[in-house]
């Protein structure tokens, strides 16, 4: 170790060199862009679109013009998160508590893999299933005519559950995996019914996983664009869709920047509030993001 101390100066040079490219990237492509949209959001729209320097809060005052996008996002994102939780929990329970050790690695990989597989294409597959010749055509054979599924909030929710289920399963699985099975045996030996064991032992033990999973899904849903664009067909739109419209179609950059800032602020507030309530009564929530 004495050797290492001798070359301390040299080591800090190496450390600096190793961190240099990453630092440069963070500054140029994260810090600078965030500062730029903050500046733009207090600016004015130029005569031909784009940006004109100013200091005004007009853009923020104008936010209610896109209220529908915000209310849609703030109802469908939490609803989607809860649905994901309801569908994911039994699977995570199965994987963590019931599945055989031999089958587990494969079953787990099969859950994780879709999440990293082309989101666009997986969402697009539902156009077939929910579209006119999919489920509605099937229902028509049973006499249920004129069922519209595509371009409804229902379609968007299906897309959400389909897209984000893996992200919810994994953290819950990890917390159930760690659960000491002897606790369940002890609970049963002491005469607790399976339901009571579940409510008093399993569920509280898996709470950190539930918190992490909901957090991950909620954060991603707040910035969702593709699912409403493909399955909402312009009728069900999120803030993300409003942003694309403002930046690429109507080229109203200052207002778009204000909408983006509002989205980030609302997201941070919601996440903070959620973590606060989730950790009340428990000493520490496991909120590691990855």
């Amino acid at each position: 170790m004495a050797k290492a101390e001798q070359s301390g100066g040299q080591r800090s040079v190496v450390t600096t060199m190793l961190l240099l490219p990453t630092t440069l990237w963070f500054l140029l492509l994260l810090v600078l862009p965030l500062i730029v949209i903050l500046v733009f959001s207090v600016g004015e729209r130029g005569p031909a679109g784009g940006y004109q320097p100013a200091f005004t809060l007009d853009q923020y005052a104008n936010l209610p013009a896109r209220l529908k996008a915000f209310t849609n996002t703030l109802t469908l994102a939490p609803l989607g998160t809860i649905l994901c939780l309801l569908f994911a929990y039994p699977l995570a329970y199965f994987l963590g508590v019931r599945a055989s050790a031999r089958a587990k690695p494969l079953l787990l990989a099969l859950v994780v893999v879709p999440f990293w597989t082309s989101f666009l294409i997986r969402t697009y597959a539902w156009i077939f299933i929910l579209g006119g010749r999919g489920i509605p055509a099937l229902l028509a054979q049973f006499g249920l005519d004129d069922v519209r599924l595509i371009n409804t909030p229902f379609a968007v929710l299906v897309g959400i559950v389909y897209g984000y289920l893996p992200l919810m399963v994994f953290p819950i699985y990890v917390s159930l995996e760690k659960l000491d099975k002897r606790l369940l045996e002890a609970s049963a030996d002491l005469g607790a019914s399976p339901l009571r064991s579940f409510l008093q032992v399993t569920l509280p033990m898996s709470l950190p996983g539930i918190v992490t999973g909901c957090l991950l899904v909620f954060i991603l849903l707040m910035g969702e664009y593709l699912i409403p664009a493909i399955l909402g067909g312009g009728k069900v739109f999120f803030v993300g869709n409003a942003l694309v419209d403002l930046f690429l179609q109507s080229r109203n950059w200052p207002f778009g920047s204000a909408v983006a800032m509002a989205l980030v602020v609302i997201m941070l507030l919601a996440v903070t509030a959620y973590l606060y309530f989730a950790s009340r009564g428990r000493r520490r929530a496991d909120v590691s993001v990855i």
């Binding site: 963070f26 492509l29 994260l30 600078l32 862009p33 965030l34 730029v36 949209i37 733009f40 940006y51 954060i219 991603l220 707040m222 910035g223 664009y225 993300g240 942003l243 694309v244 930046f247 950059w253 778009g256 920047s257 983006a260 989205l263 980030v264 997201m267 993001v289 990855i290």
Partner: peptide, 18 residues
């Protein structure tokens, strides 16, 4: 963590504008 948490759409917009 900021780079991971900020929604992709906001990163896209901010990068475009910057």
């Amino acid at each position: 963590y900021t780079a991971i948490i900020i929604p992709g759409i906001v990163i896209g917009i901010a990068t475009l504008v910057a």
